[in-house]
Design a protein around this nucleic acid. Structure first.
Length: 508
DNA sequence: TTCCGACAGTGGGGTCGCAAT
DNA sequence: ATTGCGACCCCACTATCGGAA
């Protein structure tokens, strides 16, 4: 199959807003792909690379060569070049990758170049990724969608599942099963604004668990071999020997567990997320890092215990299996209750202990691998501040032509100026985007550069955020975590905005 | 007919490893 | 030694489609 076939399909998918039409376009293409190219086609058209990451990003794609006129590149050729690009390491690799990118783009037409650039930047922008591709695969292979979803749950990588469906039908899909050593996409949680709201969504009895501010892990054990995966299924076994030892010490030889690693201080309170994150991603001198910043591990779910797959079982049964093989000190603190007051007290305890909040879980829900299931609902406290807009950046994609990303500042009473605390683009409706674009252009005091408009500091915006973290990026040494806009405060002037002292007090 | 679940898109701060300067 | 880039850790929120109610 030719690359141009994919580029054309992608353009057609982008041009139709209806999901069913997108599915038709994708299924039509999958219906004529050759068996040995199915994996490549599915990967590209769902916005990922079979190589996963190849070391080329936004900067590496600047100044593409002139496109050619005839479309002759095949999927096999393109994918072979991507393999070569990924294989470049060591001194001179940047130039070597650049040369291969030039070779790749020189062999592409204009439409193919556009498709490749979007694919390599992970910005396909065709309104279809895995979710739509699953349906397209089912349609093209003439198998039930549920069969594709089930196989994906167990295999974790859609191109492999899709190729099996196209080439082997339902039987090939049914051959997928949970394998120790091969990670499963972790189940994710929805959010609620309060414990009461979360309990309301679950209805009746619920399990309430501490939400620890660490790194999600999935641990597999087969005999003496323990492997640790992250949320995106990366293998971090070498960075977390504490986890390997803890699971290796359990009596059960055959396990798949879901949990969190976190750096705790000697008094048991959590370190800031930055500390845990740094420790987990640090590959050099793990033993030394471990001395300084030991990791603790807590498990909250079990997907497999001693040969039994538990994914389909209710949450309570999985948790019973977990506590059957893991000692209490390695299990995330948890309470089962139907009482709102009891659950709220537990939540307050967690927050007082320095933790993120809680996850409220349905005792009945199965493990919805790879999905944001309604069976898990997280609740976290929310801080708010009234901050001043210092500048705004032009948006991309559907926000093109709109001022989108706001630079947020707190008042500094000492200087009479403002200290930047970060940016946010979240929480804005289309209506608000239109309004702020107009208003900010009125307040503009000239563009700082081609994508940022600086403004007179007059507009006050109420911002919600999860916490304040240390920052080397901003002059005040602080940055907001997960800032989002709640509303503009047209009733307030900049002199009434919150001050840096208020923010600094939140960091302690 | 209305409601709501699932998905895609739009980007945020921080940290590490690596290659280039 | 420092800098820039890519990848990945944490992530919130809105708009939209189409099936469920």
């Amino acid at each position: 199959m030719l690359l141009i076939d994919l580029a054309r399909t992608s353009a057609a998918v982008a041009a139709d807003s209806a999901r069913l039409a997108k599915i038709r376009h994708l299924a039509e293409l999958l219906g004529r792909v050759e068996p040995d190219e199915a994996e490549i086609a599915i990967a590209y058209l769902s916005g990922e690379l079979p190589q996963r990451a190849i070391g080329v990003g936004w900067a590496g794609l600047q100044d593409p060569p002139d496109p050619r006129l005839a479309a002759t590149a095949t999927l096999r050729q393109v994918n072979g070049l991507l393999d070569q690009i990924k294989a470049q390491v060591g001194p001179g690799s940047q130039a070597a990758r650049k040369a291969l990118i030039t070779e790749l783009f020189s062999a592409a037409t204009r439409q193919e170049q556009t498709f490749l650039a979007r694919l390599l930047r992970s910005e396909l922008r065709q309104g279809a990724l895995d979710g739509v591709m699953i349906e397209a695969i089912a349609k093209a292979a003439e198998v039930p969608v549920a069969e594709v979803r089930r196989a994906l749950t167990l295999r974790g990588w859609l191109p492999a599942v899709g190729a099996a469906a196209l080439n082997g039908g339902v039987e090939a899909l049914r051959a997928f099963h949970l394998e120790v050593g091969r990670p499963v996409s972790p189940m994710l949680a929805q959010s609620a604004t309060s414990v009461a709201a979360a309990l309301g969504k679950i209805g009746g009895l619920a399990a309430v668990e501490w939400k620890l501010d660490g790194v999600r892990i999935q641990v597999h054990r087969s005999g003496e071999t323990v492997t640790v995966f992250t949320r995106t299924l990366d293998d971090i076994t070498a960075q977390v020997p504490e986890v390997v030892e803890a699971v290796g010490a359990l009596s059960s030889q055959d396990l798949v567990l879901d949990g969190e690693v976190i750096a705790l201080r000697p008094d048991g309170r959590p370190e800031p997320f930055q500390i845990t994150s740094g420790r987990v991603s640090s590959r050099a001198d793990v033993a030394g890092a471990r001395e300084k910043t030991p990791l603790s591990v807590f498990f909250f779910d079990a997907l497999r215990v001693d040969g039994a797959d538990l994914l389909e079982l209710p949450g309570e049964s999985r948790h019973a299996a977990l506590t059957g093989v893991v000692p209490a000190e390695l299990v995330t603190p948890r309470l089962v209750t139907g009482e709102t007051a009891t659950a709220e007290e537990f939540y307050k305890d967690a927050v007082r202990g320095g933790h993120e909040g809680v996850v409220v879980k349905s005792p009945q829900a199965p493990y919805a691998a790879g999905r944001r299931g309604a069976g898990w609902i997280k609740v976290k406290p929310r801080h708010t501040l009234d901050l001043v807009v210092l500048a705004a950046e032009w948006g991309h994609g559907r926000r093109e032509g709109r001022l989108s990303n706001l630079h947020l500042g707190a008042r500094d009473p000492l200087t009479g100026g403002f200290v930047m605390l970060g940016k946010t683009f979240k929480g804005l409706t289309d209506e608000l985007l239109a309004w702020q674009t107009e208003r900010l252009l009125e307040l503009s005091d000239g563009p700082a550069d081609s994508w940022t408009v600086t403004v007179r500091p007059e507009l006050v915006v109420e911002v919600a955020f999860d916490g304040v973290q240390q920052s080397s990026r901003y002059a005040g040494g602080m940055a907001l975590r997960f800032a989002r806009v709640l509303r503009y405060r047209s009733d307030k002037s900049a002199e009434q905005a919150d001050t840096v002292e208020t923010v600094r007090a939140l960091m302690l």
